[in-house]
Write a protein that binds this DNA or RNA. Structure first.
Lengths: 220, 220
DNA sequence: TCACTGACGAGACGCAGCGTCTCGTTCGTG
DNA sequence: CACGAACGAGACGCTGCGTCTCGTCAGTGA
């Protein structure tokens, strides 16, 4: 039996203005009052938009926030890529992904550098509030969690896979190591400390993680 | 100015019967309908209790669930300790903490064994639903998150610290390693995969984590 | 043993936000 | 330019919140 369902809206006539206003309002509210107190009614009011406009295009508060955050990340990545380009010359067309991990030939140094940058990012309130909210929602809502991972987390992790593979070719990482698992040795501890408040997050800590992971715990 | 605040309730007259009924109802509802759809009204109705009785002793839904889960864990630990005792003879009075990590002298084997047991536990629906709910709440609610860690997670992690220190004395782990950080190399990756669905959780995976962590990624 | 008294179960209350709906109005498309 | 669907606005019934007020019941201290 074919659908006589709600009949999907016509996306060609969608208001870009409303879409942006909703993104901005959602992010702002999560930052200002926190995720649990952010409501659809609140987002609509702040965006100057009817509630129905939100319900027409999104299925839930979490959906709105995920898209808003995705959009924010793209903007930020574009801005960063732009600056990079201005300072160091062209690098092909607009990056669809944040720049890769530097490859100076010194794996430990490169990883420490990137992890220090991540530490800084985790402390930026504008990023922290929305990404915490999405992570929390993802823990308890598998469908959204998987989208969060696929669209935001995994692309970042892939950069580590690439760098580790390069290190393997350079003979700095054993060839039998699976890079996708190896990266978790230093990324996951940082993630857990951030998500669950299981310990302080410092440069010293992430540097130590890299050393432990590369050299191992056992005597050499 | 001294308090003319709500006047705290008299805990000596507290109904043990209600307390237990509330714990049971909270856990059951989280398992059956999920954390977001679990409501204070629902818990009260299911427990056969007035709403005020919940509001009198707890501050929020998350508070109730944390205490209920803590109680459940203690029960489970007591039961496990009991069985352990029956099968292998007395071991002092009732354990307030789950048994330590086995120490056969083979660190890798001991860690793999315990992590395999953790993998099994993470799959038990009766434990999974409530602990996911609490973890999610903790991500977005720092105060509760810290209590969750201090009362549930950290005691477990301490067992790894003890085992790693023993391994250091046996010369199987370098003496300059900080055990509290070292344990994160294999515990956090598992935690992240579970929390965020970033990858499959298998015995093979946890075994690999132990090998990578002990031997390091770099050629030896 | 008994009187006291505060916790108890039950449920009414006003309020906030949900998700659906119905208005005119506006604006993109063909 | 005419069409019509998306739009802003807001009313609707509903659910759950957190507070409150009832009798009733049971633990405590005399």
């Amino acid at each position: 039996m074919a659908s006589n369902n709600p009949a999907p809206p016509d996306s060609t006539r969608r208001s870009e203005r409303s879409r942006r206003a909703i993104y901005d309002a959602a992010i702002a509210l999560v930052v200002e009052v926190g995720y649990p107190k952010t409501t659809i009614e609140g987002i609509a009011a702040r965006a100057g938009v009817g509630k129905q406009t939100i319900y027409r295009w999104w299925g839930s508060k979490a959906d709105v926030l995920l898209e808003a955050f995705l959009d924010l990340s793209e903007q930020a990545a574009r801005t960063a890529a732009q600056e990079h380009e201005n300072h160091e010359g062209q690098e092909g067309r607009a990056g669809h992904e944040s720049q890769g991990i530097p490859d100076t030939g010194d794996l430990a140094a490169d990883l420490k550098l990137v992890l220090r940058a991540t530490v800084d990012e985790l402390r930026d309130p504008g990023f922290e509030a929305p990404s915490r909210a999405l992570a929390a929602e993802g823990v308890v809502n598998e469908e959204l969690g998987r989208r969060f991972v696929a669209q935001l987390l995994e692309p970042q992790l892939q950069l580590y896979v690439d760098r580790l593979r390069s290190a393997q070719e350079a003979g700095q990482v054993r060839p039998d190591i699976d890079p996708r698992i190896a990266l978790e040795l230093f990324v996951s501890p940082l993630a857990q400390r951030w998500l669950q408040y299981t310990g302080p997050i410092t440069y010293e800590y992430t540097d130590t993680l890299v050393d432990y992971a590369l050299n191992g715990l056992a005597p050499r």
